[in-house]
């Protein structure tokens, strides 16, 4: 496992799949992301980006989510499966 194995969600390339390691912060946003199931071990895929590259179109498990880059930057990923 190399350092390049880790990145934040906004650094993912389209079509790339990764797994959440943790979400930064203890505020409102981190709670909301947690409520939606964005937490350790969850599989995410960057499906695409909106015009001007923002927001991001993601697959989280079996559903699809639009998230801004700024917020995606707080979600940390690991590119090789934890499982």
């Amino acid at each position: 496992m190399t350092p390049s194995d880790y990145c934040s969600l906004d650094q993912l390339r389209p079509g790339e799949i990764a797994w959440v390691t943790h979400v930064d912060g203890t505020d409102d946003l981190s709670q909301r992301l947690g409520d939606l199931g964005l937490q350790k071990g969850v599989e995410v895929e960057l499906l695409g980006r909106a015009p001007w590259g923002d927001p991001l179109r993601l697959r989280v498990g079996s559903w699809r989510l639009g998230l801004r880059r700024q917020e995606a930057a707080r979600i940390h990923l690991q590119k090789s499966s934890i499982h």
Binding site: L29, P55, R57, L65, G66, E71
Partner: peptide, 8 residues
């Protein structure tokens, strides 16, 4: 700026 979470 507020948060933005949008289900598709």
């Amino acid at each position: 700026a507020p948060l933005f979470v949008l289900e598709l």
